[in-house]
């Protein structure tokens, strides 16, 4: 099982779907950012699985995954800063109470 590409791809598909569900369903803005991190990790697992099982992609996959990790770190920094800035104005982390543009 550990030697088949399909097992890793299905595993990362399940992780991605869990992240998608959490992003769509949770009310807390920080929970949503955590779910985005889960989805980014699922993508990274896919990249590394392809790199491990397709010889032509061997080292390229590791380099691309490293760059993805760095970009995810940048995204987390800015995302959390935005959440904290909104929290300072609205006093709640729940996204369904950010309804200023609806009123």
């Amino acid at each position: 099982m550990a030697n088949s590409l399909d097992a890793y791809l299905i595993l990362s598909a399940m992780l991605f779907a869990i992240g998608t569900f959490g992003f769509l369903a949770r009310r807390n803005a920080i929970s949503m950012l955590m779910c985005i991190e889960l989805m980014v990790n699922a993508v990274n697992l896919t990249i590394l699985a392809f790199g491990a099982f397709i010889p032509a992609l061997k080292d390229h996959a590791s380099v691309i995954a490293l760059i993805v990790i760095a970009v995810a770190a940048a995204e987390a920094t800015v995302g959390l800063a935005i959440v904290i800035a909104i929290y300072r104005n609205r006093r709640t982390p729940l996204v369904d109470e950010y309804d200023a543009m609806r009123q």
Partner: peptide, 28 residues
């Protein structure tokens, strides 16, 4: 939506021949 996503991914994985080898290649 999440369940539909998993089904679509599983179908894609099952239907595609990736040209993968059966052993894992170590990257140094």
């Amino acid at each position: 939506a999440a369940v539909v996503l998993v089904v679509i991914f599983a179908a894609v994985v099952a239907a595609t021949d990736w040209g993968a080898v059966a052993v894992r290649v170590q990257s140094t």
